[in-house]
């Protein structure tokens, strides 16, 4: 009887293990195709030149620069607002209706579909604020979308700061703001940065919010100001794969661009994951 139960357990555990492995396998398959077919497109020329011949040849430099420009605007918007919101929620607010209201707002903002952010950015930043299709409009849209991620990560980092630090500082006659600025934030800083990298990497890979707010099909020049329209890696993949007349002929460029985007996004993620595990180890001591 007990033997039978243990056999059941063994079989079921194997299923669970297979499920977990399936995730890894799926990721591996996608990576295999993108890498094996994309790396041949990668060359110095590909990374350092603009597209030529109606985007059937040449490189993706404007897309790389454009994506970076969008990310920069995103950081400028989301990091200060996100960290400040987290400071309010974790350090100042007491539990109550106002906080629950604010949290409800953040949770729902996190759930808004990316294309809806795109619609909002188009109607608000591009049209009402007259910023047009530009790195600024796209970056602001991405910034609002990234906000909940950064708030969440910053709150987690602030929570991990032992309360005794705050008490010790206050007991010495430091004001609350001095305590936050000089004790709490320095300790929470690595965690905040980790979370922010994760948020920005997500923004870098997004397409739908920038399709009509920041990114364009093709522009021969690199952006000179944040009010210029830009090309972006994710949108470039979409455009090449669906909208050209040479879809089959530019396949290698599509794979190449996808590979560059994945390297960029995963690179940010891996560095954040490694940084975070280091922080956790430090906290345990």
């Amino acid at each position: 009887m007990i033997k039978q139960r243990l056999i059941v357990q063994k079989v079921c555990f194997s299923f669970l293990k297979i499920a977990a492995l399936l995730n890894g396998a799926a990721l591996a398959v996608i990576l295999y195709f993108i890498i094996s077919r994309g790396w041949r497109a990668i060359s110095w020329e590909f990374l350092s030149q603009a597209p030529r011949d109606s985007m059937t040849a040449g490189g993706i430099l404007p897309c790389i620069v454009g994506t970076m420009a969008l990310c920069l605007v995103t950081i400028f918007v989301a990091l200060p607002i996100g960290v400040a919101s987290a400071i309010y929620l974790n350090e100042y607010a007491s539990q109550g209706k106002l906080v629950r209201f604010i949290r409800l707002g953040i949770n729902n903002l996190a759930g808004v579909p990316s294309i809806v952010f795109g619609l909002f950015g188009l109607a608000f930043f591009c049209i009402v604020l007259k910023m047009g299709v530009s790195a600024a409009s796209g970056g602001l849209t991405l910034g609002i979308m990234t906000l909940p991620v950064i708030i969440g990560a910053s709150e987690e980092a602030l929570k991990s700061v032992p309360n005794t630090y705050r008490e010790a500082s206050l007991a010495m006659g430091a004001s609350k703001w001095q305590t936050i600025r000089k004790v709490v934030l320095p300790v929470a800083f690595p965690g905040i940065i980790t979370g922010s990298i994760l948020g920005i990497s997500r923004a870098a890979g997004e397409t739908a919010p920038i399709m009509y707010t920041g990114a364009v099909f093709f522009t021969p020049d690199l952006p000179a100001s944040i009010l210029d329209e830009v090309m972006a890696l994710p949108y470039h993949i979409y455009v090449l794969a669906t909208a050209g007349t040479q879809i089959e002929a530019t396949r290698h460029l599509q794979y190449g661009t996808a590979l560059v985007l994945i390297v960029l996004v995963f690179g940010m993620n891996l560095s954040a994951i490694i940084l975070r595990s280091k922080i956790r180890k430090n906290l345990r001591i």
Partner: peptide, 8 residues
């Protein structure tokens, strides 16, 4: 305090 709590 009860537990030593120097700042890092």
């Amino acid at each position: 305090f009860q537990k030593p709590n120097p700042f890092p």
